[in-house]
Design a protein around this nucleic acid. Structure first.
Length: 735
DNA sequence: GAGTTTGAAACT
DNA sequence: CAGTTTCAAACTC
């Protein structure tokens, strides 16, 4: 093992030397903590600032505290949490996993090299980081690098280069509790997602990205691909079945790669030799990740043929597709949605994350009832409370039910997470049946990706939800003369800077959960912990409609609010809080908006259920998610962009609790039962309306958060951090 | 889908 | 800081 690993490391090291490495490093945020990571960063002169393009969201660029690219400030903060979560996660996940899966997971843990989530570099990192931390530190660098590469590979460039098998997709699969059938499905979904991604990518500024990526791809893919295949063939135990039609060769490679990942891990444990091969494959796979997309295209055809059992697909989609796009197309609008979202977000950034998150949620539910459920809830919560995707990511990782894949995705999507949060929030926020339906129709678009309809702002003002959320506008957007696109990255960044200069918190999450509040909340259980940074100024809506940002964010009004006739069910400005649940019920009964809340409440209950096993129905998961984030549609925006970075730290704290809850709630049912308690906690942490609902104590809300208002509040120490994060973004813009 | 309402964002 | 305008989402029909 050691020898092979060492070799792998070396190879990885080489990669590191490549300028690309820097980019990769950023995604590694988790690793950042590790000395190795630092060392690598120091070594690499190159900073993949723009390379980050991957992420459509500028947040990633601008925010990336690290090398600009991936490094969303969140990531760094998340790192710790991730590790913790991962460790925790690993344990729970194993039990859930089948014997094979368990083996895989174990191997993964044991082998840092193996990147389970090639698709999502971050996730990979997360997984790796976890494994590494637990297992071997020495390997970290290599893993990281490989992961980075893989991540980059994901970029459109990789797609073009897609010569490699898509280990990434495969990797993703492994994480999830995979059955051969599932893997197939996943692959297919992935492929589809890739296609969509490609398309979207083409739309985006991918040219630059591609150039960068091509280098990376070339760089990584060649070595990786070859070894990988070999490993796959040898190792493919689980699912060689993936289809071996020639056309499917790629497909096979992908599926095999996926299998390999799992197998590889196992093999590592089992056999060093095999493991070594696998590792190589894994690393490369990661790199190949981009390739996945291209392959996926090819595979799509194939995959479609092989099958994709309906039910399974969702899971697959959830895993990766989400990000990339759709995963699958399974049809459901999900596929479309995801694709849409993904495409824009391909970059991985916010949009991608958002989509992925949503998908993940769904997937998780599908894949593992317990894990999925938990995960789902957290993300939504994260969105609500915190803009940063990190929380979501971390939560994802934490969720035991979630498999590495998901976690990986999450991690990757940290930036994306923001976007996801948006999406989720939107979905949730859409609570209004009509819009929800509409959006649902549009699909994941709205959910995964925010959509805007700007006509005069050019999507360069906060009027634009996409821009405000720190994400680039995507296909689904109906905006006119949109400048909020990767092509106009410079403009976007400049504009952001200007806006931030005016208002440093402009891109910060609108709804902030004070870490304090979290703690306080625990005792009080008040959703109040989360509040709108600025407060609302409603005069006619009574803070009972989404016009009210507080309401939209699912948080109660606070002292900061200047609203008139506040009737915010989540908490009135005067301090009298309605019982969130009660309010929800009332509203539901009375108002359409209430309907949202009803859904929310219902979803809470439902989500856990749906989460249970692998119900393919995303809607269930989405709804649940939406419920969580329902009110938060807008907040997510901030999350993605700035907030994510800034709030990440907060998210951490929150995440942890969430994780705990999730873990404890291993069973979806548990979640349900626990639901109120745990979920609320999560929500509270997240600031999700749900939490508010659950938590009755209005006082807590009013007390802790309100005054400071936003980031201003001291309680939101994390928030403050987040604020700085924004600046980071600006730097990126500089790049 | 068009039109209205609403309140945040932007501007003065 | 306050007032006004602009803007796009939310909402209604």
């Amino acid at each position: 093992m050691g020898d092979e690993k060492d070799q792998d490391k070396e190879s990885v090291v080489v990669v590191m030397d490549t300028p690309e490495r820097t980019q990769i490093a950023t995604p590694l945020s988790k690793f950042e903590d590790s000395p190795v990571f630092n060392y690598i960063n120091s070594l690499s002169p190159i900073k993949p600032v723009k390379s980050v393009h991957f992420t459509q969201t500028f947040s990633a660029l601008s925010f990336a505290s690290l090398p600009s690219v991936f490094t969303s400030p969140h990531v760094s903060s998340l790192k710790d949490s991730r590790f913790l979560r991962r460790h925790q996660f690993s344990d729970p996940s194993k039990p859930e996993l089948t014997s094979e899966d368990a083996k895989k997971t174990e191997t993964n843990e044991g082998n840092p090299n193996v990147t389970q989530n090639p698709l999502h570099p971050q996730t990979e990192f997360n997984s790796n980081s976890v494994s590494e931390t637990s297992v071997m530190q020495s390997n970290r660098p290599s893993n990281l690098e490989s992961r980075k590469l893989s991540y980059e590979a994901v970029s459109p460039d990789t797609i073009n280069t897609s010569k490699m098998d898509n280990p990434s997709s495969s990797s993703i699969v492994p994480f999830v509790n995979n059955h051969s059938a599932n893997d197939r499905i996943r692959i297919e979904s992935d492929i589809e997602g890739m296609d969509s991604l490609h398309n979207k990518v083409s739309g985006c500024d991918w040219d630059s990205l591609i150039s960068d990526a091509s280098e990376l791809l070339n760089f990584d893919s060649p070595s990786d691909t070859v070894p990988y295949k070999g490993s796959t063939q040898t190792t493919l135990d689980q699912k060689p079945d993936d289809k071996n039609d020639n056309p499917s060769e790629k497909h096979e490679g992908v599926s095999t790669s996926l299998n390999n990942f799992e197998v590889g891990e196992l093999a590592d444990d089992m056999d060093n030799e095999v493991g070594s091969n696998l590792y190589r494959g894994m690393r490369r796979r990661c790199l190949v990740f981009e390739m996945m997309g291209s392959r996926r295209k090819h595979l799509e055809d194939i995959s479609n043929v092989p099958d994709s059992s309906g039910p399974v697909l969702p899971n697959d989609n959830s895993l990766i597709p989400m990000r990339t796009g759709n995963g699958n197309g399974n049809g459901n609008g999900n596929g479309n949605e995801s694709s849409r979202c993904i495409l824009p977000g391909i970059g991985l950034h916010l949009n991608a994350l958002a989509s992925t998150l949503v998908d993940q949620k769904v997937v998780k539910h599908e894949s593992s009832g317990s894990g999925g459920q938990l995960i789902i809830a957290p993300p939504s919560a994260a969105y609500n409370s915190i803009p940063s995707g990190q929380e979501l990511v971390t939560t994802m990782a934490d969720a035991p039910g979630l498999e590495n894949d998901q976690s990986g995705v999450v991690s990757v999507t940290e930036d994306v997470s923001k976007a996801l949060g948006f999406v989720v929030n939107e979905e949730l926020s859409q609570s209004s049946p009509r819009k929800k339906r509409r959006r649902m129709e549009h699909a994941g678009e709205t959910e995964a990706c925010k959509r805007c309809n700007c006509k005069k702002s050019k999507c360069l003002k906060l009027y634009c939800e996409c821009f405000a959320a720190g994400v680039y506008c995507v296909e689904p957007c109906s905006c006119q003369e949109c400048f909020n696109k990767p092509i106009h990255e410079d403009t976007v960044l400049q504009t952001r800077k200007q806006i931030e200069s005016r208002n440093p918190l402009a891109f910060a999450p609108k709804v902030i959960k004070t870490s304090d509040s979290m703690q306080e909340d625990e005792s009080s259980n008040t959703p109040a912990s989360a509040r709108h940074k600025r407060g609302c100024n409603c005069k006619k809506s009574g803070c009972l409609k989404k016009y009210c940002e507080c309401f939209q964010g699912g948080v109660g009004c606070s002292i900061n609010c200047r609203c008139e006739g506040c009737k915010n069910t989540f908490g009135r400005k005067d301090g009298s809080e309605m019982d969130p649940e009660m309010n929800v019920v009332d509203e539901c009964e009375g108002n359409g908006t209430d309907g949202r809340f009803q859904k929310m409440a219902i979803h809470h209950e439902v989500e856990p259920i749906s989460a249970t096993p692998p119900t393919p129905s995303r809607f269930g998961s989405r709804q649940s998610i939406s419920m969580i984030s329902s009110s938060k549609g807008k907040p997510p925006r901030s999350f993605l962009a700035i907030g994510s970075s800034a709030s990440s730290s907060q998210r951490f704290g929150k995440l942890n609790p969430f994780k705990v809850g999730i873990k404890t709630a291993a069973d979806n049912k548990q979640l349900q039962t626990v639901g109120e308690d745990k979920i609320p906690e999560i929500l509270e942490e997240n600031g999700s309306p749900i939490s508010g609902v659950k938590s009755c104590s209005p006082n807590s809300k009013r007390v802790s958060p309100p005054h400071s208002g936003l980031g201003q509040r001291s309680s939101r120490k994390l928030i403050l951090q987040s604020i700085p994060s924004f600046p980071c973004l600006t730097p990126n813009s500089k790049h």
